[in-house]
Design a protein around this nucleic acid. Structure first.
Length: 150
DNA sequence: GCCAACGTTGGC
DNA sequence: GCCAACGTTGGC
């Protein structure tokens, strides 16, 4: 089993939205490195930390699971969508998504500051300088440590 | 809203 | 293939 951290802007889609909707296709990933992780390494049953970015309470807000193998992101073919990609075709899709299922909301947001302060988490990709990955792999240990801060 | 640190695009 | 210009991310 693999462990992941996935960023979302809560003003657009928060852990509460995921709780309400139970499941959601994680569309709109338009970064090749993030895509490759999802396409090549993400498997049904993997665990995900949901991270809130660009907001008031920045940090890890909840846990989710992957419920599908990755499939072509439908929004890339939809001219109405802001994620439309004219270079993508059904034969050769460029972008993919998985479905994500709500598991739990943390009692409180584990803040970015706390994560930075935890020396055991110093190798986390999240806190590396200039990091802009919206999907990144975690070691089981890192996943457990972050949740233990709750 | 600012801006550093990226990633992407496109002319050459 | 290089690289300048431009766009985006995301913490502050």
């Amino acid at each position: 089993m693999n462990y992941w951290l996935m960023k979302t802007e809560p003003d657009t889609f928060s852990i509460d939205d995921l709780k309400k909707r139970k499941k959601e296709f994680w569309d709109g990933v338009r970064n090749y490195q993030a895509r490759n992780f999802m396409r090549d390494n993400m498997k049904k049953g993997d665990l995900i930390l949901i991270y809130h970015s660009s907001c008031k309470e920045i940090g890890v807000a909840g846990v989710a699971t992957v419920t599908t193998e990755c499939t072509p992101d439908k929004t890339q073919f939809d001219e109405e969508s802001k994620y439309f990609d004219k270079k993508a075709t059904k034969e050769k899709p460029r972008w993919f998504y998985v479905e994500v299922k709500f598991k739990k909301k943390l009692k409180r947001v584990i803040s970015l500051d706390e994560i930075k302060e935890e020396t055991k988490l110093k190798d986390l990709a999240l806190i590396k300088k200039g990091n802009r990955l919206s999907i990144m792999p975690l070691k089981k240990k890192e996943f457990d440590i972050i949740l233990s801060l709750e």
